[in-house]
């Protein structure tokens, strides 16, 4: 089993794998900092700043980091897979090595995010009452929760991205549209159900506040479904 060459394949250009996402993240973080500085210069009311600190729990600037990482899952299939098969690596070897790289990258960036979050918390938002790392998507609880949550979210992103791309490889773009349409249909059904049935609406709403552990279960499940689907699909993927 030639796992090392596959890992080399993904990490041959370290700047792309580690440097580029960090750069985009830094840029996005700088924007948030500027916003924070402006906000702090406009108002010095403690309640305003506390409101901002609370409100920014939902800001998605961190997706500047998470987004490219999902892109990594897609690129693994569109750009790295053809070269891997071209170099005589088997699909099984590629899948295992790539999964290892996914998890490794997720771990590295999880550590980065968690460190950022700890500092952010300790300094009450970098002294500016802003949030970048310590947000809803990465976990606003204790640091160990952020560690788990960020790792799960990034991994799930990568595996789902890889699975979706492999689906396109196997059955064309149309298959992806159908899948997305099915999801949208399900969502629409849920909304319709909630409108027509108050009890169902109440149940749906309760899901939102079901707590951290069940939510992590959901993310884990999505990640595992993505990983398994990808592992199965990639076994019959062809070079294009």
């Amino acid at each position: 089993m030639r796992i090392r060459p596959v890992v080399n394949l993904h990490t041959a250009n370290r700047f792309t794998v580690i440097g580029q996402p960090l750069m985009i993240m830094s840029f996005s973080f700088a924007v948030i900092l500027v916003v924070g500085i402006i906000a702090n210069s406009v108002t010095s009311s403690a309640s305003d700043l506390t409101d901002m600190y609370q409100g920014m729990r939902w800001n998605g600037a961190i997706f500047a980091l998470l987004g490219p990482l999902m892109g990594f899952g897609i690129a693994a299939m569109t750009q790295y897979f053809p070269l891997a098969t071209g170099l005589g690596l088997t699909r099984r070897e590629f899948a295992r090595g790539t999964a290892l790289v996914f998890l490794g990258l997720a771990a590295i960036f999880t550590v980065v995010v968690t460190i950022g979050k700890v500092i952010e918390e300790a300094t009450t938002g970098w002294g500016l009452h802003i949030r970048f790392f310590d947000v809803f998507y990465t976990g606003v609880g204790p640091a160990w929760q952020t560690l788990i949550q960020t790792f799960l979210v990034i991994s799930a992103f990568m595996f789902v991205g890889a699975a979706a791309t492999t689906m396109v490889n196997r059955w064309g773009q149309f298959s992806l549209w159908i899948l997305l349409a099915l999801f949208m249909l399900a969502g629409l059904c849920a909304v319709m159900g909630a409108i027509l049935n108050d009890e169902f609406a109440a149940w749906l709403f309760s899901l939102l506040s079901m707590g951290w552990v069940p939510w992590m279960g959901v993310v884990l499940a999505i990640g595992i479904i993505g990983a398994v689907a990808w592992a199965i699909l990639v076994r019959r993927a062809q070079a294009r």
Partner: peptide, 8 residues
């Protein structure tokens, strides 16, 4: 042969 965009 396709190569990753970022490859030298």
């Amino acid at each position: 042969q396709k190569y990753p965009d970022t490859f030298r």
